[in-house]
Design a protein around this nucleic acid. Structure first.
Lengths: 197, 197
DNA sequence: GCTTTAAACTAGGGGCATTAGGTTGTCAAT
DNA sequence: ATTGACAACCTAATGCCCCTAGTTTAAAGC
């Protein structure tokens, strides 16, 4: 019996790979164990159960995605930063569909795990940073952040689900959508401007 | 043995209810059978397998959602139509989270099923109809449709996943997001207007 | 009533999640 | 080098779930 030298981290890493290959909801303890050359039951020494493993994948993905966005937006501002932010987001979703899906499913994550996960907190700051150049004040700032996140997530989710017909490539729409969002942020309707058409 | 009088439609309806209660990915053949007072194996006379059942839920949901949107937007135009469309979308997602999730998972749907499902096709027409008042021409029209769908879906998905902190209610952000989208559609950056900040 | 059809059943194989309890590497201290 | 202790890993077993094959039986048409 050659020890495999497992840790929670290695189990999570293999599970994340598996998620990207077969889909997040198809990640099973059995498959992960098989990949590690180990029996199912052995995993329970490192991970509480399947739900716990899913939560770990989600946290890993959140961290990775945040880092990618941080690297992409570093030193940029204005539309440059917005585009870099958005492209990094979408690229991560494309490259790691399973991990990305993990960030989206509402899982109860063990508090002690979430504690030392810098991802989520840092992500908020990054988004606010991108919007700094547009001169928005609260509560518009929060609304704008949420709108951006909604749009980015919605776009990649619809893209992944095959929601866009083939007539026009998603890439073309993506470019124009970023133009539109930039324009929107520059002319944010702060107070009562929404005159009914 | 009292015949239960099952049909594919009744099975699907019960499965859809179950999805709303426990989540789309927790719908199982066993649970559905139990609700119908029938053995698991009996379902296979009406539904090919679990995947087929999932596809049926997805088509049912797409139809229902489309109908709701059609009713909500009938006779409206401009911002009125936009808001009605968006609210109907979000309301459906709130009232039927399981069904809504079904519309989002990429399932291979049997072609013969998709054939007589008016939902998807009609939905496209509805969205274009809402945008009629904004005077957009292709390809901007397609891009705008995709942006709206992305934003609506992204918003309700993040909302469902608990993506919005409690500081500001999602409802407030939603109102402002619709204002913003309306303003964006009225001032759509048609050609080269995106001067880098 | 009798036939036909299909609705529902029983039986069983195989996969997965999880728990309990047993072995056996490995590392530190003697 | 030997000994313990601690994990790491295993075997065994339970229960739920998906799905297939073959069988019984209610209901509809003659």
């Amino acid at each position: 019996m050659v020890r495999a030298g497992l840790t929670a981290e290695r189990v999570t890493a293999v599970a994340a790979e598996l998620a990207d290959e077969v889909g997040f909801d198809r990640v099973t303890m059995s498959q992960v164990a098989r990949r590690l050359g180990v029996k199912d039951a052995s995993l329970y020494a490192h991970v509480r159960n399947l739900n716990d493993l899913r939560g770990r994948i989600a946290l890993l993905a959140a961290d990775e995605k945040t880092i990618r966005i941080a690297e992409a937006t570093a030193g940029r501002s204005g539309k440059d930063a917005l585009v870099a932010y958005a492209n990094a987001w979408r690229a991560y979703a494309h490259e790691h569909p399973g991990r990305y899906a993990a960030t989206q499913t509402p899982i109860e994550i063990a508090p002690e795990l979430a504690a030392d996960a810098p991802g989520p907190r840092r992500a908020v700051g990054l988004t606010y940073g991108v919007l700094r150049g547009y001169g928005l004040a609260e509560p518009d700032l929060t609304d704008a952040v949420r709108l951006l996140r909604s749009t980015f997530h919605g776009f990649v989710a619809l893209e992944a689900a095959g929601g866009f017909a083939h007539a026009r490539t998603p890439q073309e729409t993506w470019i124009r959508a970023l133009d539109a969002l930039h324009s929107l942020l520059e002319n944010w309707p702060s107070a009562r401007e929404g005159a009914p058409s």
